[in-house]
């Protein structure tokens, strides 16, 4: 809804009293705006800028060296690998959950939705802890895994599991309200016309939610690549083997290798900026998808 407070400025309603009651005085406005911007600058902008300036502190060569150093490279590879596994899996889950919730009638929908939101209310450290309790040396399956020489905790599978846990709601949370808003009429129409279930899904449902999927995937990916707390618990912090980029940043920082730490961090910051841009651009498209064609 368009807010009217500014156009009303030019709207003289008798004494200035009524006009002043509809918007703050210019002084107050300037003050509030200044305060807000100052706060944002302090809290958001300065840190953002600091990442990049610190990264380039020792010059471009050092920056490049920090990123291409073998341990850094394997951290990058591991981050990409983890995301490449968790995001598609969570995508399939998100689509399946949204289909079940939006296109069918059954009891327990709100329970399901609450369960899906669970990772958001659990601390990342606890998210990692639960997997250690199951797969760790002293965990449920610990002895069995040790017997068969399968490593989950302190190895890549554990990382992937923990990442899946913290990121699986993202796609589902985008698609569920979207599909619910779109209803089931188009799918019913397709069925009446003779389409099979899969035909209906691929030719009617999927094209209608494609922007929602993309949006959810980008958010999911951002979290998957940036997750720290959960993977910190399940990783062994083994350089070159079980370190994702955030973990590598931690190691470099703890070694007082600040420039290098910030160099790797800057890559993650770039990912964040890309995510923000995508969020803004796609957000509108997703809102349009949610509006069904006017009746």
């Amino acid at each position: 809804m368009q807010n009217q407070s500014l156009s009303l400025d030019r709207f003289s309603v008798g004494a200035g009293a009524a006009r002043n009651a509809l918007t703050e005085s210019a002084a107050v406005r300037w003050l509030l705006t200044g305060l807000a911007l100052a706060f944002l600058a302090l809290i958001l902008v300065i840190p953002l800028v600091a990442v990049f300036t610190q990264a380039l502190d020792k010059g471009l060569d050092a920056y490049w060296a920090a990123i291409t150093e073998p341990d850094a490279m394997s951290a990058i590879r591991l981050t990409l690998l983890t995301a490449a596994i968790s995001v598609p899996l969570n995508l399939v889950f998100g689509v399946a959950a949204a289909w079940a919730i939006a296109k069918s009638k059954f009891r327990g929908k709100s329970l399901l939705i609450t369960l899906i939101d669970l990772p958001f209310s659990v601390s990342p450290v606890i998210s990692g802890l639960i997997y250690v309790l199951i797969f760790g040396l002293q965990g449920w399956f610990g002895p069995w895994l040790a017997e068969h020489d399968i490593k989950i905790i302190f190895a890549i599978p554990g990382l992937v599991l923990a990442t899946i846990f913290v990121t699986f709601p993202f796609v589902a949370r985008e698609l569920i309200p979207l599909m619910q808003a779109q209803g089931t009429e188009e799918e019913e129409a397709a069925l009446v016309l003779g389409a099979s279930g899969w035909q209906t899904f691929f030719r009617v449902t999927l094209p209608n939610v494609i922007w929602g999927i993309l949006y959810g995937v980008i958010l999911c990916n951002a979290r998957a690549m940036g997750e720290f707390g959960a993977v910190s618990v399940v990783s062994g912090h083994i350089r070159g083997l079980t370190n994702t980029m955030p973990l590598h940043v931690e190691i470099l920082y703890n070694e007082y290798n600040f420039a290098a730490a910030f160099a790797v961090a800057s890559l993650l910051a770039l990912l964040a900026l890309f995510t923000l841009a995508a969020k803004t651009l796609l957000g509108k498209k997703v809102r349009q998808e949610a509006q069904t064609t006017t009746k």
């Binding site: 705006t33 911007l37 944002l40 958001l44 902008v45 300065i46 840190p47 953002l48 600091a50 990442v51 610190q54 990342p124 951002a222 690549m225 940036g226 997750e227 720290f228 707390g229 980029m245 955030p246 973990l247 940043v249 931690e250 920082y253 600040f258 730490a261 910030f262 961090a265 993650l268 910051a269 990912l271 964040a272 900026l273 995510t275 923000l276 841009a277 969020k279 803004t280």
Partner: peptide, 29 residues
């Protein structure tokens, strides 16, 4: 606000930025 869209998008930075990056940056600052 000039550049309101930019400011608005920036508000989501803490969502999008990995926590470790935020951590070391704030510590440094």
């Amino acid at each position: 606000l000039p550049g309101k869209r930019l400011v608005d998008a920036l508000v989501d930075l803490p969502f999008a930025l990995p926590t470790a990056v935020a951590g070391i940056t704030l510590a440094g600052l």
